[in-house]
Design a binder for these strands. Structure first.
Length: 576
RNA sequence: CGGUCCGUAGCUCAGCUGGUAGAGCACGUGACUCUUAAUCAUGGGGUCCAGGGUUCGAAUCCCUGCGGACCGACCA
């Protein structure tokens, strides 16, 4: 670590660290500090009448300090909340040595440090629940200043809101923005709620490969990787559908998996390259049955998270109470546009998209054209949860043909807040038909559709052994979380959303500078000026650099002997 | 991939039509035994994202790049 890169405040904290060590205090002690309650417990259950919580032990991070001579108030934050501490010199120090208060607490501790305390709960004159501290122990020194967020009467001052910093340094975001923590806690409760629902029905949670020799089960471009020993290209899964169906063939009645899937496509507030889906397959069921399950499960999730079926999402109040509206895709399009596309061929559909001003291209087949109409005119306007049923066969190569409507498949999506919430169908279990559908996809691929599915021979072999009639379901967990926690962006429901890498040059060691003849004394100056690598000096104008160095020397009163212009020129000349 | 906007102290942000870089919080020093955006006094802190150009002079104007946000395109 090069000290010239540190800010003034970071240097002060490092000096404090040394002072603490000199006092004989370990700033990162190994011994366990025993805690016997949490801030939330105290907040919930303290009552002055019962005089409880009189011997509490807490640990947490210092979030504010108000020092008034020999007494101070401070706030600490643990995983459950924040509470005020009341610290007096005479309480934590022996009479003959006040160093613990006057030096350690007042001078050497900072906002961000992690401490353990023991003491008793009480209410201050101004009515604030606090802990009167009897004992204080440093558990970990913090070397970087935190963003300071203050709050009064619910108004937040100097909020830490820069999205880039929040996402890149999520740990800081979580420390200073308590509502962020809450979103992620609810995300986990959402997953637990679904898991509980499915387990209660006796379905088996399973794990299937993430590295797949063929990617299948969805329409998307994959990430590609390579296994050295096998000398084989592998893909990160875009879905796990085909593996879960193999398990249904194998005789499981109901299997599900919360799976991280990977799609090598654009990023925006609804798409992250890696995301989470749950997929569920249940034997001897159909898509109508699955609709009932979806309603019941999502309604339960809403109640588990909010205590009600109604959830505020942006400006909309969304009600997940059963039953949801059910309408076929063609009916929905007809309802909106007055056009019945039921009997149309590809050319007629192309004509309709032209009339409706919907952009298309030549690679789009019948299925994609219908999807374009739906996606443009219907989906964004469906706010309350709605089932859209019976999709064209061309866009659903893994779904079973409709029992009575030719050209359609038994598939539904639930749309909510203008976006797809889930996708489900009666699974295609006719191996001959499945092979034909894959071959149609190959044709689309040849036309230039980069997302067309590839043919999976092993999956077809499994189907040929016989798969029971099966209902399948996929739900995007990130998007469901966005709705259930009222977050506008997928980045707000992922701890570590994908970002471009931070670019920061690693500083060269001093020797690399001295090799070029640069005196050691000037190295920190050059680094402070931004030339953290010797190679950065390469094509510089020597006269300008000379001027800058002398100027820096003077301005900062370093009183270093100024180099001669020729010397500077020589340094630069030596750099390869 | 296209359009719009943004990048100044640890944090939040000012900085006009170019002329010596500002505030609040945070930090240092001092005062203060019930404060709470604590208060009072005082002090320090900046490659103004990077590189180039225009200019006597650039945080400011122009170009390029990097990073980010939003909207669209693509995409479940």
């Amino acid at each position: 670590m090069n000290y010239t890169e540190l800010s003034e405040q970071e240097l002060i904290r490092r000096q404090a660290l040394e002072e603490i060590r000199k006092m004989g205090i370990d700033p990162y002690p190994a011994a366990l500090f025993e805690v016997n309650t949490s801030i939330e417990e105290i907040r919930k259950n303290f009552s002055p009448e019962r005089n409880n919580f009189q011997e509490v032990r807490l640990a947490g991070r210092i979030m504010s300090r108000r020092i008034m001579g020999s007494a101070s108030f401070s706030e600490i934050q643990d995983a459950t909340g924040r509470i005020q501490l009341y610290i007096r010199r005479e309480d934590i120090c022996p009479p003959d040595n006040t160093a613990l208060y006057d030096t350690l607490f007042k001078k050497l501790l900072d906002i961000g440090d992690i401490i353990g305390i023991s003491g008793f709960a009480f209410i201050t004159k101004t009515g604030e629940l606090s802990i009167h501290v009897k004992e204080l122990k440093l558990l970990a020194k913090s070397l970087r200043p935190l963003p300071i967020v203050k709050e009064k009467d619910g108004k937040v001052f100097d909020a830490f809101t820069d999205p880039e910093q929040r996402y890149r340094q999520r740990y800081v975001d979580l420390i200073v923005n308590p509502h962020v923590r809450d979103v992620f806690v609810r995300r986990t409760r959402l997953i637990n709620s679904m898991r509980e629902f499915l387990n209660r029905r006796g379905y088996l949670e399973v794990e299937t490969p993430i590295l797949q020799p063929l990617y299948g089960g969805a329409a998307a471009r994959p990430f590609k990787t390579y296994h050295n020993t096998l000398e084989q290209t592998l893909y990160l899964r875009i879905a796990n559908e085909l593996y879960l169906k193999r398990l249904i063939v194998g005789g499981f009645d109901g299997v599900y998996e919360f799976s991280k899937d990977f799609r090598n496509e654009g990023m925006d507030r609804f798409h992250n390259p890696e995301f989470t889906q749950i997929e569920l397959y249940v034997a001897y069921k159909d898509y109508l049955w699955m609709m009932d399950l979806v309603e019941e499960m999502i309604e339960k999730v809403a109640i588990d998270l909010h205590g009600t079926t109604q959830v505020q999402v942006g400006e909309h109040l969304i009600d997940f109470k059963r039953p949801w509206k059910r309408i076929t895709m063609y009916e929905a399009i007809k309802e909106k546009t007055g056009i019945d596309i039921g009997e149309m061929d590809e050319n007629q559909l192309r004509e309709v998209t032209r009339k409706l001003n919907i952009e298309t291209d030549e690679t789009m087949g019948k299925g994609k054209l219908i999807d374009a109409i739906f996606g443009e005119l219907i989906e964004p306007y469906l706010i309350q949860p709605t089932f859209i049923m019976d999709y064209p066969i061309e866009m659903s190569p893994l779904a079973k043909k409709h029992r009575s409507k030719p050209g359609l498949v038994e598939r539904f999506e639930a749309i909510c807040n203008g976006k797809e919430l889930c996708n489900a169908f009666s699974e295609l279990n006719d191996p001959i038909d499945q092979r034909a559908r894959f071959e149609d996809q190959l044709q689309l691929g040849k036309r230039g559709d980069q997302e067309a599915m590839v043919l999976d021979e092993d999956f077809l072999r499994a189907l040929e052994y016989g798969m029971p009639p099966t209902a399948g379901l996929g739900i995007g967990i990130d998007r469901l979380t966005m709705i259930m926690t009222n977050q506008p962006s997928i980045q707000d429901v992922l701890f570590f959303p994908q970002m471009r890498p931070e670019k920061k040059a690693v500083a060269d060691p001093v020797e690399k500078y001295t090799e070029a003849g640069i005196p050691e004394a000037w190295v920190p100056v050059l680094q402070k000026m931004g030339f953290v690598q010797v190679s950065m000096l390469k094509n510089l104008n020597p006269n300008k650099l000379h001027q800058d160095l002398c100027g820096y020397n003077k301005k900062n009163k370093l009183s270093l002997p100024n180099p001669k212009p020729e010397e500077v020129k020589e340094w630069i000349g030596k750099i390869k």
